[in-house]
């Protein structure tokens, strides 16, 4: 059983005449522990796909099976619990709460979980140290650099030790050096901690950090191939 299985997945926006087809039937499976890039130009449907896979949005056709259970079988509150416990999100625009510290942002998912309060700080601290931001733990997020902000967001994504980490253009708002550091962190999460990573990007250089690239265009899969010369973010960084 694959972790994620989609069959003929479709997403149509709007009513009747003014319909826009964002996904015109895509089929693939992602195994536990994989690092997959979903790549395509803007408007290709890659963000829509991520939102459906991350249970942020609902598809209009086909099937989506997560951990052997079809997405239609989940109630809204169950989906909230899955997002909380099994999924971690990293967004292009960081989406950190303003005027709060790195630690406060990091423990936010724990507030909506069953993790007892006394474990919040140690878990938050561990996640922050894992992304190399230990020296900024009590800084307000507004005062961090772009790369630091994204690493704070990564700490938040992994604080609940999720099954899958979704990263939507995580380097899109960063300079190349900060982008490399973020990619190194993401690769480490996949290799050292065994998190499944699904990365959305329009740059092939970023996509090549994964094991496998699914290319989408106009809502359909163009190609789905393993990466032969996989990029190592730490090597690039050391140069």
């Amino acid at each position: 059983m694959s972790l994620i299985e989609v069959k003929d997945l479709r997403k149509v926006y709007g009513e009747e005449e003014s319909q826009t087809v964002a996904l015109g039937g895509v089929t693939f499976a992602i195994e536990k522990g994989e690092f997959v890039s979903i790549m395509g130009p803007s408007g290709s449907g890659k963000s829509t796909l991520l939102q459906i896979l991350g249970f942020l949005d609902k598809h209009t056709g086909g099937t989506y099976v997560f951990e052997g259970k079809s997405s239609e079988q989940y109630e809204d509150d169950e989906l909230a619990a899955i997002r909380n416990e099994k999924l971690g999100f990293i967004f292009q625009a960081f989406n950190l709460l303003p005027k709060t510290t790195v630690l406060e942002n990091t423990v936010l998912p724990l507030m909506y979980s069953d993790v007892p309060e006394r474990e919040w700080e140690p878990r938050g601290r561990r996640a922050i140290e894992a992304v190399g931001l230990g020296h900024r733990i009590n800084h307000e997020t507004g005062k961090l650099s772009g790369g630091e902000k994204q690493r704070a967001a990564i700490a938040r994504a992994l604080v609940n030790d999720p099954e899958v980490i979704f990263a939507d253009e995580p380097t899109g708002n960063l300079d190349s050096r900060s982008g490399q550091m973020v990619m190194r962190t993401i690769q480490e999460l996949n290799e050292k901690h065994g998190h499944t990573v699904i990365l959305i990007t329009h740059e092939s250089a970023t996509a090549e950090h994964a094991h496998r690239i699914i290319r989408i265009r106009d809502g359909r899969i163009e190609s789905d191939e393993p990466v032969r010369n996989r990029r190592r973010a730490d090597e690039a960084f050391d140069k």
């Binding site: 809204d76 909230a80 909380n84 709460l97 909506y112 979980s113 609940n160």
Partner: peptide, 16 residues
């Protein structure tokens, strides 16, 4: 709206 969306993405239920 963004904050609300973020909270929901991180696991907040409508009731929360």
């Amino acid at each position: 709206t963004r904050e609300i969306g973020l909270r929901k993405a991180l696991g907040a239920r409508s009731g929360d």
